[in-house]
């Protein structure tokens, strides 16, 4: 039977895991400069994420065999987040539509088709504070089954698509009056569920770790006081 010596053991697991994590931190910072949103689009970064996923799955398996449940939970959660991220990067669909709340605008600026369903803008309102600062942007859309409202932080979910209130534009009308257009983002992301399950697993593992540390350290804390 082949045994790992202590230094080899340390080199293989702890140091490698740490270097990998620190390397990814450095990579994240490298991509922190504005204008680079290509993290999941290059073969290098895809390769790094696949490697990381492999390491996480291996570590989860090893932790399960060794009955280290907390470690398994952590690495499984991180793996789920990466799987969700991969699905989002590969399969998420999104687009923006600009709809104008004006009778002067041609029909294509007041409605659009989504998967055979005609969706039109009913109204767009900018609610303001007393000092004129925007308080909320509200778009009301007409669907075949009625009018639905969308505002910032309150998206509309419908038939797998999510409608987000993103921003607005102003233009001058033929008589100098302002014409407002709402900008909506439409998104269908099958990776969200995996990623959020991963978040839940990671947070649960982190809370259990903190509880374990508190229970484990209490007796020694009391001894040091005595």
């Amino acid at each position: 039977m082949r045994y790992l010596t202590p230094w080899r053991s340390r080199l293989c697991f702890r140091t490698c895991a740490t270097l990998l994590l620190l390397g990814l931190s450095a990579l994240a910072i490298l991509f922190a400069f504005p204008g680079t949103h290509t993290f999941l689009k290059t073969p290098l970064t895809n390769g790094i994420l696949l490697l990381l996923l492999g390491v996480l799955l291996f570590t989860t398996g090893r932790a399960l065999i060794n009955r280290r449940w907390l470690s398994a939970l952590f690495h499984c959660g991180a793996g789920l987040v990466i799987i969700g991220g991969g699905i989002t990067a590969g399969y998420a669909k999104d687009g923006q539509v600009l709809l104008t709340d004006s009778t002067y605008a041609p029909p294509e600026y007041r409605q659009f088709l989504l998967e055979g369903e005609r969706i039109a803008l009913h109204s767009f309102d900018i609610l303001t504070y007393d000092n004129g600062m925007p308080k909320q942007y509200v778009s009301r859309l007409v669907f075949p089954d009625g009018v639905h409202e969308i505002s910032v932080n309150a998206p509309l979910r419908r038939k797998g698509w999510t409608f987000y209130q993103m921003s607005y534009q102003t233009q001058e009308g033929p008589y100098g009056e302002p014409i407002f257009s709402t900008v909506l983002t439409l998104r269908k992301d099958p990776g969200v569920g995996f990623t959020f399950c991963g978040y839940g697993t990671l947070v649960l593992a982190a809370i259990l770790l903190a509880i374990r540390e508190t229970c484990r350290l209490r007796p020694s804390a009391k001894e040091s006081i005595a």
Binding site: A28, F31, Y164
Partner: peptide
């Protein structure tokens, strides 16, 4: 919920991840 994506590689998000 607000921006339509759970991760956008925003500088603050990346530094928080790091």
């Amino acid at each position: 919920e607000a921006w339509g994506a759970y991760w956008q590689w925003d500088p603050k998000e990346q530094w928080s991840l790091a």
